[in-house]
Computed example of a mutant assay.
Amino acid sequence: MSTQRYIRIQEFARFHQIEESILYEFDDFGLIHLYHRTDGPCISDDDVQDCERVVRLFRDLGINKEGIEVIVRMRGQIVSLQQELRSLKSLMEQPHRRSDQSV
């Protein structure tokens, strides 16, 4: 059984050279999820990559929170559609394998 690991936002902010307040804003806006633990607000290991993506869009590309929200939502839709496409391709290939084996 694996346990969930967390990184404190102070560490995340220092590593990425951003203000902690922007992480609170992203959380309030729903772009990231902060976990409020006894040792302070944290980001789960599972969410670090998404948080880094949001920070890059904001800091490096200068995209505002509303724009990031659209990008994150569209990216989620693309990932979902890619998974669905892989699943459908897999289903379509199955009958071909069966017909190839019977020849």
Results as ranks from 00 to 15, higher is better:
Ile32Phe: 10
Glu52Ile: 09
Arg53Thr: 04
Gln77Gly: 13
Tyr6Phe: 08
Phe29Gln: 01
Gly30Asp: 03
Phe26Val: 00
Val48Asp: 05
Val54Thr: 07
Val55Ile: 14
Leu91Lys: 14
Glu84Tyr: 02
Asp46Met: 15
Gln4Phe: 02
Ile9Asn: 05
Ser21Gln: 14
Ser90Ile: 13
Leu88Ser: 09
Ile43His: 06
Asp60Lys: 05
Asp46Gly: 01
Cys51Pro: 01
Ile63Lys: 07
Arg75His: 09
Pro41Glu: 04
Phe26Ser: 02
Gly76Gln: 08
Asp100His: 14
Leu85His: 13
Leu31Tyr: 09
Gln83Ala: 12
His96Val: 15
His16Tyr: 11
Leu57Val: 00
Arg37Thr: 05
Ser21Ala: 10
Val70His: 07
Arg73Glu: 09
Glu52Cys: 10
Val79His: 09
Phe15Ile: 12
Gln101Ile: 13
His36Val: 01
Glu66Val: 09
Gln94Asn: 11
Gln49Arg: 10
Asp47Trp: 12
Ile22Cys: 06
Arg53Ala: 03
Ile63Arg: 04
His96Lys: 15
Arg75Val: 03
Glu52Gln: 08
Glu66Ala: 07
Leu85Ala: 12
Leu31Asn: 05
Asp27Trp: 02
Ser44Glu: 00
Leu61Thr: 12
Met1Trp: 07
Arg37His: 02
Leu88Phe: 11
Ile22Thr: 08
Ser21Trp: 04
Leu31Glu: 00
Tyr6Cys: 01
Glu52Asn: 08
Asp47Phe: 13
Phe26Ile: 03
Asp27His: 04
Ser44Gly: 08
Glu52Phe: 00
Tyr35Asn: 04
Ser87Val: 14
Arg5Ile: 08
Ile71Gln: 05
